[in-house]
Every structure is written in structure tokens, then in C-alpha cells.
Design a protein around this nucleic acid. Sequence first.
DNA 1: CTACATACCGACCAAGCGGTTTGTAAATGA
DNA 2: TCATTTACAAACCGCTTGGTCGGTATGTAG
Lengths: 196, 196
Amino acid sequence: MVKVSEHTRQKILEISADEIRKHGFTATSLSVILKRCDISKGALYHHFTNKLELGYAVFEEIYTPEFLAMWQPAVSGNDPIESLVDFFQSMLTNLSCEDIVCGCPLNNLCQEMSGIDEGFRLRILNMQQQLNSLIATNLVRVSSQLRDDINFQQVAYFIISCFYGASNLSKGSKNKDLFSQVINELCAYIYHLRKQ
Amino acid sequence: MVKVSEHTRQKILEISADEIRKHGFTATSLSVILKRCDISKGALYHHFTNKLELGYAVFEEIYTPEFLAMWQPAVSGNDPIESLVDFFQSMLTNLSCEDIVCGCPLNNLCQEMSGIDEGFRLRILNMQQQLNSLIATNLVRVSSQLRDDINFQQVAYFIISCFYGASNLSKGSKNKDLFSQVINELCAYIYHLRKQ
DNA sequence: CTACATACCGACCAAGCGGTTTGTAAATGA
DNA sequence: TCATTTACAAACCGCTTGGTCGGTATGTAG
């Protein structure tokens, strides 16, 4: 049996996710969320104890599954190198300029909230470690095809860093071009992981 | 002849720079600055027309020269490749954990302010382009020693991205380790720019 | 029909924000 | 010496923020 109020809760989560994605957590105003949801403050505080808990719920119930689904093609398939490159190249073709400039919520929240709130920091750290493990173990699978001097964890973190940095860098220029350049260079780097 | 009030102005700038570095521009409170400077609101608004102009002044008079001085060793010297690697390696030894977790003000402000305020965005973009040019032209100088397939602008942006991403990534973990790993991998990448 | 929980409304609150205004002591130029 | 500007101090203002609280309509179980 599905509770009726679940619909309200979901709406709050989705709109909050959208606001936080666009403006960050701190700059997201509850009153804006209330207006967009067309509900009262009482409704929101019936479902969530405070703004921070709402933020955690958004992270766990919206961003986490979204993030895992997004990266899934990058860390599956027979050829991890090709999967990674395809994944990044598909970003170049599929993502709009606004998407890129808006950036990855995980990266944004990491920068904004890590120093302020431990709850956010640990959730973010956990996701980053998960992603790192996914990439690293996937590369290990085909280590025989790869160079001998590779530190898999280090390479995985390097790839994530480049992605983070690329989206940060393109925020200043407000266009896809910088992002494309960095991602292309990243793909060249990834190819070079193979035995020459 | 030096104006007496210049001392007050400098103090405001330096303390504001410190606050903005630690908490970002929006989260920096004027009242905190006033307390730390031990001055009144009247003093601050005598020297700066509003918070935004104070922010611009901090960027231009504190962050910009600091940034250029910081990167200078990376883009000078006889061997650009070695200079870059030395520069990054010296960060690993010289920077404290807090420094790393706090991150580069340019990167932080880029993420926080690019989407909010054009004045900040253009100043940041300008600095990034300057840095990119410095790195790229420095590499061009020794292009005969480097691989033939190098796109210098792209490589320069890639290096900056990795640096940005590394400091972002380490914010979540609150220690130097992740930063070190990414920087080490970046140095390996930089060495690989040379002809093999 | 009664009793109680759920789901929500909307007025209200204290605190903090950036910014304005009024006032004044000190420095400066004529 | 006197008028004027400089360099502040401090009270004040409107506004927004997250958060609380009393009330209420709608179920729902006994």
C-alpha cells in the first residue's frame, strides 16, 4: 500500500534536487522550493526535520542513484578502456552547454559542503571512493593489456580529478569548448594506459 | 606621499582575502571582517562601495599577484617539463593539509561565483587564460624535445584541470593523500610529453 | 460514532545579512 | 586661523533566512 503523502515527498525531493544542482545547497532557499512545489512550510517540515536532512535525502535518494546510473556504462563492458573513452565522448555529444556549466552535483557539493558539514562530506567521500573502486577494479580486470607501471587506484583518482577539473574550468568560460579540450586530452591519456 | 588611511584599506583587503579563501565569497560575512579588523561598518564602506567591489579588489590586489607569484617558478627556467614537475612536487612537500583542503582561491571562486556574477567570472576567466598561455608558450619553447602530436593549449588546460580536480577531490577526504596521488600521476603525464 | 494519527496550512519568530545615514574627530589646504 | 575634506564610528533599516507552533481537514481503526 502506497501512502498518499509519498507523492508530496517525492515532489519536494525532485524540486530540491533541481534547485541544489543549480544553486548549491546553501544558496538554495526553502521558500523557493515551497513556491515551486506549491506547498506550505508545514508540509515540508512534516516530511523533513530540517534543511540539512532534506539535503541528505536529496543526496541519497536522487543524486546517488542518478550518479551510479550515469557512470555505469563507463565501468562495464568488455573493454574498460574503450568504455571509459566512449563514456566521456558521449558526454561531449549529449550534454548541453548548460549541463556542463552547471556541473556534476557531487563535485559541486564536495567543494561547497565538505568543509562545512560532516554529514555531507562523508556521503560525498563514500561516493567518490565507490566510483574510484569501480574504475580501478574494472581496469585491473584487463591489466594484462595495460602498461606494467600502472597504479590503478591512482589512475582512477586521476581520471576523476580530470573530470572534476574540466567541469570546473568550463564554468568560467561558459561554453563547451574548454570542457571538450580537456576531455579529449583525458581520452588520449586513457588510451595511453594500454601497452604501447 | 602615502595616505594614512591606506593602512586600513590594506588590512581590510588582507583579512577579507583570508575569509573569502576559507569560506568563499557569499559565506563571508562583513560583520566578521569588521570584527577581525576591529573597525566599524562606516570604515569599510568608506573604502569600498559594496561587498562585491570589495570582492573584486581582493581578487585584483591580493589573489592575482599571489597567484602569478605562485605559478611563476612553474613557467620559467630552462626546462619547462622539469619546472612544472618540480613545481607540483614542491606543493606536496610545502603545502599543509589545511592549505590543500582549503584549495586554490581561483578554483573555488570559479565554481562559486562564475554562475552568479559576471564581474567575478570575467576576472577569473582572464586569469585562467593568462595561466594557460604561460604554460602553453613555455612548452612551445621546447617543442623540439616534445612529442609531435601535442596540442599545447589543450595540454595546458588539461594540466590546470588536473590541478583543480585534485584539490577538489581532496576536500572530501580532508587529507593530503588523494592530492598526492593525483599530482604524482599528473607528473608522470607531464614527463610523458617528452619524446620517448 | 468516537478517538486518534496523518498531512498540511500559514502566521509568527529571532537572527543575520548587506547597506544607509547621521554624526564627529582628525587631518589638510588656503 | 578657519573652512573643508577625510576617515572613520555607531545606530539604524529593510529584507531574507531557517525554523516553530497552534490550528485544521482528512483519513482510519476500534
